[in-house]
Amino acid sequence: MRALLSLVAGGPGRVATTAAAIVVIVFVLAGHGWDLVRASWFALIFAGAFAFAVLAMIGAATGVADGDSPVPAPGQADQ
């Protein structure tokens, strides 16, 4: 299928756009448009939650939230 879409549409971005358009057209013509909208909404919510969790883990790992208690440099710790 990817080879056919590459032949018809062109590069990877165009292939993804064409494939998404084909899926939307097929769902709407089959009468399942609201199912597609509902699935897209839940996918958007879960993707947002996943992105927030990843950003929270990155922030915790890098110490972004440790701004309230600054740690002195090793050479200045005894002064």
Rank of each mutant, 00 (worst) to 15 (best):
L44Q: 13
P70C: 02
A47F: 00
S6V: 05
A56S: 06
A9H: 01
G75E: 14
A73G: 15
G59L: 03
A16H: 09
L36K: 03
V37R: 10
D66H: 13
P72D: 06
A65K: 08
V15A: 01
A65D: 07
P72L: 09
A21P: 00
G75M: 11
V54W: 00
A51F: 03
P70H: 01
V71G: 11
L55W: 01
A65V: 07
A43Y: 05
Q76N: 14
A21H: 04
G67D: 09
T18L: 11
A61V: 02
P72C: 05
F46M: 13
V15I: 05
A65Y: 11
L44A: 15
R38V: 12
Q79A: 13
G67E: 11
A30L: 11
L7R: 08
P70K: 00
M1C: 10
L7I: 07
A43W: 03
A3S: 10
A51R: 04
A16Y: 06
G59T: 02
A65S: 12
R38I: 12
L5V: 02
D78M: 06
G10A: 01
A49L: 14
Q79G: 15
A51V: 08
F27T: 02
M57Q: 14
A53S: 10
P74M: 06
A39P: 01
D66Y: 11
A61H: 07
R14A: 07
D78E: 12
V26D: 03
G31Y: 00
L29S: 07
I45A: 08
V23C: 11
M57C: 08
Q76H: 14
A3Y: 03
A60K: 02
F42E: 13
S6K: 09
G10I: 00
A73K: 13
M57V: 06
V23S: 08
S40C: 09
V54E: 02
F27L: 04
V28W: 03
A16N: 07
L44G: 13
P70R: 01
V8G: 01
A43G: 12
V64F: 08
